[in-house]
Structure formats: C-alpha cells, structure tokens
Design a protein around this nucleic acid. Structure first.
Lengths: 146, 146
DNA sequence: TTTAAGTTGAAATCCGTTTTCATTTGGGCG
DNA sequence: CGCCCAAATGAAAACGGATTTCAACTTAAA
C-alpha cells in the first residue's frame, strides 16, 4: 500500500466515522509512514517530538490505534513487552524473523507454511482467522561476529 | 515429563543454585502440575488460595519464574497481556491453536512446518533458536454454534 | 541450638498503556 | 466570515500486570 493510498484511506475512514482531520493526525501519519515499520509508540513519539515538540504522547497513541482500526497499520507484539506497529500491506500477509542479538526484524512469507497451517488446523476442527509466526535466532551479521 | 520427574528436577535445581526447598514451593509446584497447562499467575494463585490462603501472589510469581528457569515450565504470551505458563515436555516442541470465541487452547506439532521454518530462515541468513506459532480461529464447537 | 542466608507476604514500585478532564480546534451552518 | 458544538488535544492521573522492597520468618548447615 503506497503512502498516498494510506493517507487517502485514513481520510476516508475519518470522514466515515464522523472524526476530524487534524494537523496532528497528519503529522503523525506522515512520520509513521516515513519511519519504516515495527516502531513502538514511544519511538514514534520521540521522532515526532524533535520536529513538533507540542505533540503529546497520548495523541500518538490514539492515532496509532486509529491507523490500526482503519487498516493502514497493524499492531504487533514481539515479546519485549511493547506494542509495535507496522504499515500494512493488506493483501500480503507476512511473518517475522527476529534477531535476538541485534533486534533486527526481517519480514518473510511462505505459502507452503500457510497451507500447512490450514491443514493442521482442519485436522483439529479449527478454522483459522489469523495467525502469528515468529522465528527468533541470529541473523547473518550477528552469527559471524560470535 | 512426568510429575515425579519434574519435582526431582526442581529439587536438583534448587540444590544446585543454593536455594531452599520450602513448603510453599512444593505446594505451588504440585498445584501447577495438577492444574493443566496455560495458567496465568493469577489463575494459579486463585486455585492455591482456596486450600492455602496464606500463600502470597508474589511467591506464586517467583516460583513460576523458578520453574521456567529450571526447565520444567515455559512462559507464553497469547496476546491478552498476561503471561501464561505451561509444563514443558522439553524434547517435544509444540505450537498452539487458540479459539478466539471460547478461549480453548489446543497443542499441536508438525515437523513439516518446522522444517520449512528452518529452510526459510536459512534463506535469510538466520539460524533459528526458537519460534512461536499460534493459529487463532474458531474451534469445532464454536463454529457449529454460530 | 545457633546462626547466616534464603524465603515469605503485604505493600510499594515499576512501566507501558489507557483514560480523564479542562482547554483548544475543526468544520458545518447561518 | 463568525458561532457553536462535537471532537481532539496534552498533561497528568489512573490502570493493570509484573516485579521489587523490606521486616519478619524459615531453612538447613555447623
């Protein structure tokens, strides 16, 4: 999903919900799209603060929730106790490789794994709505150092 | 891992770390093993409280951490913000199916998925230490109701 | 026993998240 | 344009689970 597309989708969402388009929301969305994925609320807040010191943490938090509601962002939890948000591709699901050493996060996608998930779930009578797959280990850089 | 085996492993662990075997720790471990898996600290605490009102939440919390440290339990997070613990099988890894409707948790294991995970990680230069795979959806019971 | 070190439970603290509330702002309407 | 009201904002407070503190109490080794 492109940057312009996300912005339009957000505007439509605000309109449809009777919510208002504000300067803060625009700034936050822009920074969110610019910043690359997997940011925590805190990280995004700090980035914004540099250029726009009057923006409050609560507004960043609330905006991220709105982004998630309208489908341009997704909330993730990688076990460090913080919620992280990533811009969503929407038609393209993906999973994550996380380096336990340097924290690098790589996205991947494998239809074979997805297919097996559906199969296994079926064997237990489940129909899957969504899933979470995270692989934790060492990336190439960190493996070579040790 | 059998119940007796876990108890012995815990005792060995305590000894090896210069920690003490106490009545509370025994009670908590017994109730933990009896209770079936995926309990939160809170849930285990409530169960214990019925028979042993003098046991404190902090002690339950600390004991569960010890169980995890010595390898007889594993901590899990299923996205409801609470840590849950399960007795660990240790040589047998498994993943989870979670019913979003009734909260039922089913364990499963699929070597084909595991193999693909290793393969995909390798393509990105990662070596996997551990992973998390959770499938969220509706179980057979809940699907048939709706 | 005596004693030093570890443990306990209640309460306090931590820390990310979420809410409150007084004030400000957006934008529809005359 | 200005008015007005609902929505939004930001600072601070509240929240909730996890963790720590600390004085009193156990454990187990000598």
């Amino acid at each position: 999903m492109g940057s312009t597309e996300s912005k339009n989708k957000f505007k439509d969402f605000l309109l449809s919900q009777g919510l208002k388009s504000t300067n803060q929301r625009e700034l936050i969305l822009e920074e969110f799209l610019r910043a690359g994925s997997h940011l925590s609320t805190e990280e995004l807040y700090i980035r914004l603060r540099k250029k726009h010191p009057r923006i409050g943490y609560a507004t960043v938090h609330r905006s991220l929730k709105l982004f998630a509601q309208c489908g341009i962002a997704e909330q993730r939890h990688f076990g460090d106790g913080q919620a992280r948000y990533e811009a969503s591709d929407h038609d393209e699901h993906h999973d994550h490789l996380i380096c336990v050493s340097c924290g690098k996060i790589v996205e991947f996608e494998d239809p074979r794994i997805e297919a097996l998930q559906v199969e296994v779930a079926g064997e237990h009578g489940f129909s899957i709505e969504r899933h979470r797959l995270e692989l934790y280990g060492s990336c190439a850089d960190c493996s070579s150092i040790t």
